[in-house]
Design a protein around this nucleic acid. Structure first.
Lengths: 106, 106
DNA sequence: TAATATCAGTTACATAAAGTAACTAAGTGA
DNA sequence: TCACTTAGTTACTTTATGTAACTGATATTA
């Protein structure tokens, strides 16, 4: 009756992706580099506080890059690293599943 | 500067999958029908309370099936529906990404 | 000149979600 | 009778998230 433990890297990936907002932020960044306010507007119900937290976490994971342009006012661009862009196929499969199995809203 | 709204079905799929524990429960059930206590043990840090909640939600979404065998003591089996099994390719892509991009723990 | 706006956040506070441990009911076995 | 099983539930605590106001440097508007 012993269970085999789950692969820790797989578990880590699920942990990253299943944190609230993370997936939507990454998906949003798949369309190209964006500024804080742009991401905030694209994900209408996220709070600036959590967006800020998630971007830091994703940067720390090496999924998101943060580049500061010392203009006036300062411009900060968030974008995906190679590691981040490599998540695209996961979203492709989610899109397939959702179009096949979820009902079209009325 | 207007954003295109995200596909509501895709958004719903992400919402389902990114709720804490949901993905791991579904992944666990991909290995076959299981009882409450089995799932509970396979996912060592989940509480019975949350497992119970998630199974109800997944049943409600049509992803999980709950079958009661009126034995003594009662046996209840949780399994994936077709809709639930169709999530497998998503996990396949997560597994690929994690083995390619996440470090092997020491 | 003063008020207002922008950007990229932060802070304090309130609510919602998740974790912990004890408990339930129906029945079995010692 | 006491202890044990299964599939949960309950009360309570801790953590996560949401809300709204605020920061500071600069620019624009009245």
């Amino acid at each position: 009756m012993e269970q085999m433990p789950m692969c820790p890297r797989f578990e880590k990936a699920v942990e990253i992706l299943s944190k609230r907002w993370t997936s939507l932020i990454v998906f949003q960044l798949l369309s190209g580099p964006q500024r804080f306010a742009q991401i905030d507007h694209a994900l209408p119900n996220i709070s600036g506080k959590v967006l800020s937290e998630r971007l830091k976490e994703l940067e720390h994971e090496g999924i998101v890059r943060r580049v500061v342009f010392p203009e006036i006012p300062v411009r900060i661009e968030y974008s995906l690293s190679d590691k981040g862009r490599a998540l695209a196929p996961i979203f492709g499969e989610i899109a397939k599943w959702s179009s096949e199995w979820l009902p079209v809203p009325e």
